[in-house]
Design a binder for these strands. Structure first.
Lengths: 129, 129
DNA sequence: AATTCATATCTACAGGTATCGATATGATTT
DNA sequence: AAATCATATCGATACCTGTAGATATGAATT
């Protein structure tokens, strides 16, 4: 997760900073704002959004709104290979979106809580505007 | 976006369907549920989640909560190359998350509306649980 | 009109990720 | 204990994506 730092570019931009009204104070404010961002918290947010950023995983989430399901049911419903479904489930689980319950040979998955549905609704709202 | 269909796998699973209580009706219900999902709408949702699924784009969104900013300000604040920032902005714009306003040489970007902030809050909620 | 500047686009590349088949694991059934 | 079954993990592969430098574009300045 280490971005390459582009110092040359920054210097190039800094050269004209004093020439524009308020530019320096504005950018200083922005820089300190970025510095105050919690990188770890941001990474968690990214992880959640990544979890939702795949059509098959979205389908899984929408199916799980109907209730708990096992891997084999999801495999049939999604028409994907079992290993693929398993992979998607582990990403969703790792992001905290879904929870697992083992029962004998079966693993049942369910949505973590109502926040997921709220998230989806917000996204839809954003989309419709 | 064309998933490969894994018929063999499905057939393998179908063989034991009649042997489990309610499995057939359950999976039939799930399959028809998936069939009724609007692929195009799902793709839009995925596009939005993808827009948020990068740490630099999240930072841009958080910076834009402070108000309208031009590309060069974001470039300094994020310490990324100009082309990279421009690329991220085009993804956010394409997903409908931000809007652009041109003024002379400058391009100013702003958040589309309050839905973004709601979306972020929902994600945070989900994360904290 | 020539230069400078802000931004967008193109090109290349490294790392990430979705997918599947094959195999491993761990439970259940025979 | 051997076989079967559900799921997870591994290995390979093709595609996707974030990044930066180079170049193009279009506006403002000289």
């Amino acid at each position: 997760m280490n971005r390459k730092i582009c110092k040359v570019e920054i210097e190039r931009l800094r050269r004209f900073i004093p020439e524009r009204d308020h530019f320096e104070t504005r950018t200083q404010k922005l820089i300190s704002l970025v510095d105050r961002l919690d990188e770890e918290a941001l990474s968690s947010e990214v992880k959640i959004f990544k979890a939702f950023a795949d059509i098959n995983r979205l389908k899984i989430v929408k199916l799980l709104k109907e209730g708990e399901l096992c891997v084999c049911e999801l495999t049939v419903a999604l028409d994907n290979s079992q290993s693929t479904v398993s992979h998607h489930l582990s990403i969703l689980k790792n992001a905290g979106v879904i929870k697992e319950r083992k029962e004998g040979k079966w693993s049942y998955f369910r949505l973590s809580d109502g926040a997921v549905i709220g998230l989806l609704n917000q996204a839809k709202l954003l989309m419709e505007e």
